[in-house]
Every structure is written in structure tokens, then in C-alpha cells.
Amino acid sequence: MSVLVYTENWDGVFKKLSFELVSYAAKVAEMMETSVTAVSIGDVADDELAKLGNYGAAKVVKVDGNTTLDNQVYTGIIAQLAEAEGAKVVVISHNNTGKALAPRLSVKLKAAVGAGLIALPSSTEPFTVSKKVFSGKAFANVVLKTDVKILTLAQNSFEVIEVGGTATVEASTATAGEAKTTVKDVQKQTGKILLNDAEIVVSGGRGLKSGDNWGIIEELAEVLGAATACSRPVSDEGWRPHEEHTGQTGKIIAPNLYFAAGISGAIQHMAGISSSKCIVAINNDADAPVFESSDYGIVGDALKVLPALTEAIKEAKNK
């Protein structure tokens, strides 16, 4: 018996997301009085793999090669390792990869999924998780009825806990047939902080009046080391690419700090960002709904307030 955690890598490197997952798996394992085995697929160096021990993995099983994400191949490999380890719980991220793998694995292992979790299970007998439903308007308590369970963890919702342990690294030759997905081309964002990874996000809405005004969003983001985002009308108008749209039908994010500038705060927008730890709203309409769900607010024109805020932050940082 063990808790298995699938740790994705990015060109052979783990990031905070991976450590959040292992930390979460370690806490679940503690509740079940067992240990954590991490699974890594793709080419990752042993010293990188061993880092997972610091967050609570007792063992890391690596499967080299398979650098193309083929959902059937990855599912097959993870399922074999879960069975070999006698895993009772499999932890996966609720990111794009996890959303692709967890459901296939659920069917293969006949394992119930607790999807998009932001906290530990509330009990293991019966195995009960709380999950957001209706796009964050409510929470549901869900009992996972199967012997094996899959938990997908929302990014930025669980703290990284260093325990100072070491993990043994084992190689596995598990295979699962030919990949049916052929990658033709890859475009990577470079030099930009990814929206899902960002601790701070600066987001603009229609109140910015034009895509040409985005410089003031980018300047504030620059001094904060933040990612930039936008509301749906902004991406629909083509002022910004759809990848930057945060909200119910766009990206769901949970940064420490979210600036909503010139965003009215429609319920659909707030659904995507309500898990942010702190929300700051800047809007010229004092009655805008965004203020109801924010921690701090400024009534004013975003085009004037944002540059002033950028300067104030620069000043505070120089102190």
C-alpha cells in the first residue's frame, strides 16, 4: 500500500507545482499511515528526481523516454506502477496534463476521482473530499466509494512543505504500447511568468478602453514580477490572447495577489479568480460588483491609478 503521486516535469525540471503535489501526497499518506511513491515519466536526471524526497517522497520510480505526452501511453504506465505499488490513492495535478490523465486512469483502475481539490480529504473512512462546484459558488462533500481513489489537486492551493528527507530512485521499464499522438510543433512562451504559476497577477478589463493601453498593465506586472491576465470581453475583442482570459470559461487561477483593473466583476469573472488569497479592485464605478468580492478597492480610473500604483511600488521597494 502507498500513495502514488504523478510528478510532471518541464524539460527535465520540476517546479513548484511538483513540490505542492508531493507535499499534498505526503499529508494524505500520513492520514493513511503509509508512504509516498512518486512517478516521473520522461528524461529527468537522478539528482532532480531525488529532490522530491525533500517534500516527503520515500521512493521515486522513473520511466525514461516517452517525452511526448500521449494520454493512453502515460495512463497505461501510471496504472501499471499504481498496481505494482499497491497504491490506494493516486495524486495528480488538476492542470491540463492531469485533466487529461486522471479520467483515463479512473476508468482503467476503476478508481473514483476527487477532482480539482484545494484541501486534504476531510476523512478517510468514508473517504470524503470537499470540492468546488458551480464554478466556486458552492462546495460539495463527495464520498469516493472505490477501493483506489484518484485526487487531482488545484495548482497554488496547497503549501509546499519541506521535510528534509531523501528519496531512493528506481528505474522502471514499464511500457504501454505505441503513442498515437504525434507532436508536429511546439511553441513555448519564453521569458514570461506563466499565469498558472504566478504568485501575483495583474489583470485588465474593458475599463482599459483599448488593447493599446496594455503597457500600463505590463509595467505594473514588471515591477511586481507578476503575470498579466484579462477579462473575457478583452480576449473576445482580441485585445489580448485567449490564454490570458481568467474567469469561468477561461483560466481558473489562485495567486496570492490579484489586481482587477477596469473589470466590473461579473460572476463569471470572479468564478475564475475567487480562490486568490487577496484581491485588489480598481474601478471607476463605485457600485461595480467587483468590490463585493475584493479585499481592497480603489474607486478611480484604471488608466490613472495603475501608473500611480506602479510608481508607489517602485518607491516602496527602494526604501
Binding site: 485533466k99 487529461a100 486522471a102 479520467p103 479512473s106 476521482v113 477532482a115
Partner: peptide, 11 residues
């Protein structure tokens, strides 16, 4: 908000 049906169906 589970994001599970499509992948389950495929499997």
C-alpha cells in the same frame, strides 16, 4: 467542474 467526462469516455 470535474473535467473528467471526456477522458473517461475515451478510455
Amino acid at each position: 467542474n470535474g473535467s473528467m467526462v471526456g477522458g473517461m469516455l475515451a478510455e
